[in-house]
């Protein structure tokens, strides 16, 4: 069994309204040094006989939308 973590995040050029709302709340809480908050997704995959190329294909076809998002893949070796 192989395990992968896929991080899907909005492209840096794209406004993240949810991140901005949370940034505002953090500043309200007193964390006045908060400059920017971006929200992404973490997807954990457990695969039988999987490999990195296959996970990249999953990312391109469904897990992310290349128009608006980027993805990073981490293999979990623990």
């Amino acid at each position: 069994m192989s395990r992968y973590r896929v991080y899907v995040t909005l492209k840096p050029s794209l406004l993240d309204p949810a991140g901005r709302a949370i940034g505002d709340s953090l500043r309200t809480l007193g964390f006045s040094n908060v400059r920017d908050v971006r929200i992404g997704k973490l997807i954990e995959l457990s695969l039988e006989d999987g490999n990195q190329e296959q996970v990249e294909e999953m990312c391109r076809k469904l897990l992310s939308n290349p128009v608006i998002e980027r993805f990073d893949i981490e293999e979990d070796s623990t």
């Binding site: 794209l14 993240d16 309204p17 939308n65 128009v67 608006i68």
Partner: peptide, 17 residues
Amino acid sequence: LTEAHILPGALVRNSGR
């Protein structure tokens, strides 16, 4: 239709939250 790439671009969260 955009997710299926039948139309280009994407629809994302409203800027006004």
